[in-house]
């Protein structure tokens, strides 16, 4: 969330010619994408367009078939790379929260700091308490996840992902499993992270959020980036017919 840039600094994320197929079915067919520091990039597209797979390849949960992905200039698709250390530099938030049910809120959010980054418990907990205070859940820090609402769980999951200060944050449809009333509180937290300077790649179906909070919008269709641009231009005058159809279907729905 910090980092001083110069013009020679490589982008936080650089995706080059990434291909991925499952059992002969191409899911990603040549993706190129750059995300600069402090940038919020929103990937949109229908289910099956490859958005989630793209996020999985970046976090090395899936290996690319072809192409390269660089994290701050390091080629993370190199087979010799230490997968765990790459993942520790990237924060991920999932659609289904995936909090650890046997750990309290405070243990959930401090786990990575303590076990992966070797931060002392006191220090990790102090930092966690600041964040939980900020999202209004300080009183719940000893509670277990099943006592929290979906929106609260997802905000805890976000704090868990950012507490170890990742260089890049991947948010995979983080509001799709939520009651519509709870979507706002989660998206407000993402806005806070943007203000704090986080570098974010997120997939979402919340177009109004994409329009107001994104720096850059990419539209995936059948494994390629069909159209991209600043949100005003992208939503104001989409050029590709597929983009227009997708957006109109969303509005109709």
């Amino acid at each position: 969330m910090s980092g001083d840039e110069t013009t020679t600094t490589p982008p936080v994320l650089r995706v080059r010619g990434v291909h991925k197929s499952f059992d002969g079915t191409a899911v990603l067919s040549g993706i190129d994408l750059d995300i600069a520091s402090h940038q919020v990039v929103v990937a949109i597209g229908a289910s099956g367009s490859g958005k989630s797979t793209l996020l999985k390849t970046i976090n090395l949960l899936e290996r690319v078939d072809d192409g390269q992905i660089f994290l701050k200039g390091d080629d993370i698709t190199d087979p010799r790379v230490n997968v765990d250390s790459v993942r520790s530099r990237i924060g991920v938030v999932f659609q289904q929260f995936n909090l650890f049910p046997h750990l309290s809120v405070i243990d959930n959010v401090t786990l990575a700091s303590r076990k992966v980054h070797g931060v002392a418990r006191d220090e990790a907990e102090a930092e966690a308490e600041r964040w939980l205070d900020r999202i209004g859940l300080r009183a719940k820090l000893k509670d277990y996840p099943d006592r929290l609402s979906g929106g609260q769980q997802q905000r805890v999951a976000i704090v868990r992902a950012i507490l170890s200060k990742p260089e890049l944050l991947l948010l995979d449809e983080i509001t799709s499993a939520l009651d519509p009333l709870l979507v706002g509180e989660v998206l407000d937290l993402v806005r806070d992270l943007k203000t704090a300077g986080a570098t974010i790649l997120m997939t979402t179906h919340e177009m109004s959020f994409a329009r107001s909070a994104a720096d850059h919008v990419v539209f995936l269709h059948q494994g390629v980036i069909l159209e991209q641009g600043a949100p005003d231009a992208f939503f104001g005058a989409p050029t590709a017919p597929e983009t227009r159809e997708y957006l109109s279907r969303l509005h109709a729905g």
């Binding site: 949960l61 993942r87 520790s88 530099r89 991920v92 909090l99 650890f100 786990l111 992966v116």
Partner: peptide
């Protein structure tokens, strides 16, 4: 499996994931 996924994506190793996430939940 999403529990392992969440643990690994935090950077926990396979062994840490087993010890801290999978085994405690399995025993319960």
């Amino acid at each position: 499996p999403s529990q392992r996924l969440a643990a690994r994506s935090l950077g926990l190793t396979h062994a840490q994931t087993l010890r801290l996430i999978v085994l405690p939940q399995a025993v319960r």
